[in-house]
Structures are given as C-alpha cells and as structure tokens.
Design a protein around this nucleic acid. Structure first.
Lengths: 198, 198
DNA sequence: GTCGCGATGTTTACACTGTTTACTTACGCA
DNA sequence: TGCGTAAGTAAACAGTGTAAACATCGCGAC
C-alpha cells in the first residue's frame, strides 16, 4: 500500500497484491476452470514473466491466493461466532461457516485444499495457525472433555475437523445436496454427541 | 481381453485397458506430479492421438482411471469387511479401509475425489452405486436407528461419509499425522456415538 | 543536481501440453 | 478376393510454465 496508485507507469507500484486480487477475481468468475499464470498476468495488464519478480513459481502464486482465502475464511468464521450466545453455539456456527464458505467460493476453496498448510507450515509460522477458529476449537473441546486425556481431546478435534472438511468436500462434489438444513443438522448432531459424552 | 496379446502389431489389441494400466502405474510411481495424456500414451508405446480413439478427451481418460480406482477401493473395503465378526465391526472396518486406501494411493485418491461421481451419475448408472460398501452403510445405519426417520438416517449416513472422507483428505494433506491408531480411534469413536444413541 | 545501481518490468525463446486435421494401416466380413 | 471401416500415425496449432537477456524507472551517495 506504500507506493500504490501509480498504475500507469512502467513500475506497477504494488504488483504483488494486484496479482492476488485478479487471481481471486478470476477464481470467483470462472466456474470450474483452473487458473493460468499467464492469464492472471494478462488480466492484471502485465507481462507473464513479471510475476516471477514476486513469486518463485506458479505454485507460490497459488499459495498466496490460498493464503488470502484462508484469511477470508477465518474472517467469516469469526463473524459467525461473534453473534452467538454461548460457546457451544459459537462452536457450531464456526463449523457451519466452514461449509458455507466452501459452497460460496467453490474454486477458491478447492485451491485452498490443494495448497493446505501442513502441520509443519503452521508450526513454522508460515501460515497463521493462531486464528480465532482454531483457538475456539481447542477451547471448546477442552471445556467439553475436562477429564479427557490429551489423546481424547486430539481425537475429538480431529473428528470435528474431518467432519466439517469432508462435508464441505462432498457438498462441493455434488455427492451431498447443498441443503443448508442438512448441513446444519450434520454439524449440530456432532455437537450433541459430545454433549452426551460429558 | 478378447483380442489381446498382439502388442507388436500395428493395432494394439486392447489399447483402452492398456492405457488405463499405465495410467494407474504412473499415478503410483510419480508422487505428487499430475499425469499428462501424452505421457500415458508415450509410456504405452503409442502416439498421443491414439488415445482419442478410445476416450473423447483427457478428462474421460482420467475419469476411467478414477473409475478403476473406485473398483479397487470397493474391493479393499469388501476385503476389510469380510473378516469381521459382526456388522458393527464390519462397518468400522469399511470406514478405516477408506482412509487406509487413500493413504496407500494418494495420487489415485486425489484423482478420484476430483472426478467423484455425483449423486446424479450414480442414479443414472454411470457409476456402480450398488457397491457393497454403500449397501453395508445403509444396512448398518438402518439397524442402528430402527426408530429413526428417513431424515435421521440420512443425516447419519452423511456424517459417516463426511467423517471418513474428511479424515482421508486431512491425512493426505499432512494436517493430521498418518497414525493408524489415531485414524482407527477417530472412526471407532464415531461408531460408539451412534451406539450410545440407540 | 547527477549518476549509477538495483529493483522491477519486457521481449524472446524453449519445451511441453491438449487437441484437430489429414493420412495410413490392417482386420473382418461380403 | 476385395473393400469398408476401426484403429493407428504424423504434422500442426494454440496455449502453458519458465529461463535468459535486455529495458526502464526510482532512489540514495557523491
């Protein structure tokens, strides 16, 4: 943002974020078709090789798009959790927000799952692992299983992640109808299972 | 199989299945890299355009590979269910077999999820929806929820699918350690949840 | 002020991809 | 025996990711 707004000059000003912006736009516009480095450059009004001044290769560009996608996802999850009365409802809202985000941004979400940060990435700080959703997940599970071992809590966390992620994937693939009531019911029942275990 | 074994002649004999074989082989060999039509043809010892006599385009070839993958997956699930004492254990074995298959064949599994048969495909008969795993899933859920409505059973089925599919995806992506004990525990606990609800 | 250097662009080129078109081969049936 | 057609080929085209060499601007040191 420091040297932006000089888009007509030889030097672009802030090409890196401009490329990310058009990348996100193309992902939102072109349903199903995957994105090409040259197209992102062309649509930004810049030569293809200019991209290489800001990203080592195409994967890095896609990774940056995925990163931006995760930030949008976390924002949506935060917003969904904000309005909830208690922690349990917030927890469920976060899970539902995950699926709804995937449905609303199918291509971006698919890209995100392809470039998903591994546990190593998060620990090394390359990805923002300290997002509010992750914190809430840990908090919620700790509260649900106060007497549970670390192992039990880990299993519960994995279950929550897998359920929500698999649900999103299946809805996107058309194996499960995109029915908000069904999605909410699946997530809600997962919560009540853990309730019944306390 | 009818006119095979004449691989040295101008006409290949059974090129279609030969292409599928090398496609599966390449998927198993090249970790992470995606497959190219030309490479499949080259590796089969045939020109690239010969592929088009058997598949309308690349997507169709990949679809055939995915189809073959599903058959292997269903076989693995059948085998896993076979040795189990009761239906409940068979149910869990099927779920675990799903994840283990994904871990053992990561690239094939990724391809399968990209070319996943939609509900419409299965109903139209394009994909074998009558696999033993699907039947067992329905049977098992019907037995678990004898008094449940159709809706309840649908929710339970979606939960089972989403949990197992999401688990496979997360393990493949490295977000969850590839720990068989963890995988089994996650699937097992899902079963005990439903047990506690009956 | 101006000068030069490094960051940021561009053009050109290469190997590779999926796909179309036109041509060739050989199998099976009349 | 001959021929139609299914099943192969080679050549060409547009598009891709990327490397190499060249051009342009911005900013700090003299």
């Amino acid at each position: 943002m420091s040297k932006a707004a000089t888009k007509d000059s030889y030097h672009h000003g802030d090409l890196r974020s401009a490329l990310i912006d058009t990348g996100l736009r193309l992902l939102a516009e072109k349903e199903g078709a995957d994105i090409s480095l040259r197209e992102v450059a062309r649509e930004t009004g810049v030569s293809a090789t200019a991209v290489y001044r800001h990203f080592p290769d195409k994967d890095a560009l896609l990774g940056a798009l995925a990163y931006a996608g995760y930030e949008k996802l976390f924002d949506a999850q935060d917003a969904a959790a904000q309005g909830q009365a208690d922690r349990e409802k917030a927890f469920r809202a976060i899970g539902q927000a995950y699926v709804h985000f995937a449905v609303a941004n199918p291509d971006l979400f698919r890209l995100m799952t392809n470039c998903m940060p591994s546990a190593a990435d998060v620990e090394s700080g390359a990805f923002p692992g300290d997002n509010r959703a992750g914190v809430l997940l840990r908090e919620y599970i700790a509260a649900l299983l106060p007497n549970g071992t670390e192992w039990d809590r880990g299993v519960a966390a994995v279950q929550a992640l897998a359920l929500v992620h698999g649900l999103a994937q299946l809805v996107l693939g058309g194996q499960i109808p995109n029915d908000p009531k069904l999605i909410d019911a699946v997530v809600d029942q997962f919560g009540s299972w853990h309730d019944s275990q306390t």
